[in-house]
Design a protein around this nucleic acid. Structure first.
Length: 454
RNA sequence: GCGAAUGUAGCUCAGUUGGUUAGAGCGCUGGUUUGUGGUACCAGAUGUCGUGGGUUCGAGUCCCAUCUUUCGCCCCA
């Protein structure tokens, strides 16, 4: 016997079973639908880009993680995020696009890093961005988190919080302390507060040769967080005289107010002066989203405002604001916590079980009829004991089964069985579609949300 | 890139100080009489104990190497 090859996939790649895939697809569809409800259109850029293009700006950590290779004379890269391809796209097609340009993209990206829990080498990002020409209203900075709020609402996630901050505010703050140079390093340390604790943060700051007085100022200022109105009031009393600081503060206030107008309750967003985001291209508002009780997950949805998206490709100034859900990680964590429950492994609403060969033609015609009525139908074509067909129906979790035997064929009826209740009724052939539709609608009504949070 | 663990049936794991035919639960297959599943009962299949080498009369159990996967750090979704 020939040696068999072990069937397996690479580490850091996620592959789902049918029941899970159905949930994932539903989640993805719901996200896209919500994005569309704000007028965004989808974009589908290539997985591969020329290295020159993709790495125009790269450097540091990201570059190390990029899948890069040669094919013929081409030096190629697999995209590691969706923002750089967006920049390329907007720069390339700037004359054909209408600004503000609103696009979303739910696609896979690739990073060759060490796989760990929640860290994949291939994963979905669900990005949404608005790009303006020369200028872009700060109102859009409020629209972004509002969209995300509605996304999570629709998914059924109830307890979460979108935390935001403003880089201008922070840079202004550091500028007022004459710490412009050290600001990025300080931010990185402050960001670790929850993880390593206040004493370690102070120790790290001390290593930067900061005076105790400065450290105290920084730590107490960045400790400000909570309800937007409270934070804004507090920040105003700190009394910092700096133009950039004022601008940032003003932006934060506009965004916080607009978010409420957009239907985001104050319970679901906060201002947190510790948030800065690692990526250096953010220049204004920044966001991170946390699920209550699961801070360890990190941010499941982040983003921010960038003043110049495509500076490496064009002289035209293209400011934008965007957010992104790490869909693969989010899904993986939800599944891990049993916050999503795969139910069925078929897309069919109804499974038709012909008793024997004599019912096959009748079954196929019925299936066709139902499909023309927008019902997903599967017919079971194999022979075998009838019981096994029922077992199959049960395993795939199909909500309805239609049994077709000698009697049904003769009388032009069907036996329609609700698999959940176990009840079965005899329905005339002509009425099956209507009856089934109304029953499916009933089931839709008391369908639970995708995500159930304990 | 640095550090630490793991590896026994499809899955989750047990396997006593090395001792003969390697186990459990779940899952899977079949059955409990012929047009009805989910519960119950009965029966059954499945492993070169990650791979290679070594110690030993004898290794799933000890040693070495290697691969795999996982977990920290870094960075991030």
């Amino acid at each position: 016997m020939a040696q068999k090859v072990t069937p397996k996939i690479l580490a850091g790649f996620m592959e789902l079973l049918p029941s899970e895939q159905l949930v994932f697809d539903e989640m993805k569809a719901l996200i896209e639908k919500t994005y569309q409800s704000f007028g965004f259109v989808s974009l589908d850029t290539p997985v591969l880009e020329l290295s020159d293009v993709l790495l125009a700006k790269a450097g540091g950590e990201t570059e190390k993680q990029i899948y890069r290779f040669n094919k013929g004379d081409n030096d190629l890269c697999m995209r590691f995020d969706l923002t750089v391809p967006l920049a390329r796209y907007v720069a390339q097609h700037q004359n054909d696009l209408t600004f503000p340009f609103k696009r979303y993209q739910v696609s896979k990206v690739y990073r060759g890093e060490r796989p760990q829990k929640g860290r994949f080498r291939e994963f979905y990002q669900a990005d949404i961005d608005i790009i303006g020409s020369e200028k872009l209203s700060v109102i859009y900075d409020a629209e972004m988190p509002a969209i995300m709020y509605h996304v999570f609402q629709k998914l059924g996630l109830e307890r979460f919080c979108i935390k935001m901050n403003n880089r201008k505010l922070m840079n202004g703050f550091y500028e007022s302390l004459n710490l412009t140079q050290e600001a990025p390093e300080i931010s990185r340390i402050i960001d670790k507060m929850d993880k390593i604790g206040i004493e370690n943060v102070k120790a790290c700051l001390k290593d930067l040769n900061l005076s105790d007085e400065l450290i105290e100022k920084i730590v107490s200022f960045t400790a400000i967080n909570g309800k937007a109105t409270d934070v804004l009031a507090k920040v105003k009393t700190v009394g910092i005289q700096n133009d950039m600081f004022e601008t940032g503060l003003n932006e934060l206030e506009i965004v916080a107010n607009a978010m409420q107008d957009l239907g985001v309750p104050e319970t679901h967003f906060e201002i947190d002066l510790k948030i800065t985001r690692g990526l250096d291209y953010y220049t204004g508002t920044v966001y991170e989203t946390f699920v209550d009780g699961h801070q360890g997950w990190g941010s499941i949805c982040s983003g921010g405002r960038y003043e110049n998206l495509a500076g490496y490709y064009t002289d035209r100034k293209l400011p934008g604001v965007g957010m992104s859900i790490g869909l693969t990680r989010f899904f993986d964590l939800l599944r891990d916590q049993k916050m999503i429950t795969p139910q069925k492994s078929t897309a069919a609403d109804v499974l038709i079980l012909p008793m024997d060969e004599n019912a096959t033609a009748y079954a196929l015609k019925l299936a066709h009829l139902l499909r023309t009525n927008d019902i997903n139908v599967q017919t079971y074509a194999s022979d075998g004991k009838f019981k096994n067909k029922m077992v199959y129906a049960n395993k795939v979790g199909v909500p309805f089964v239609i049994v077709l035997g000698e009697d049904e064929v003769a009388n032009k009826t069907v036996a329609l069985k609700n698999m959940q209740s176990g009840l079965q009724e005899l329905v005339a052939y002509d009425q099956v579609a209507d009856v089934l539709k109304s029953q499916l609608e009933l089931q839709m009504k008391d369908k639970k949300k995708l995500i159930v949070q304990a």
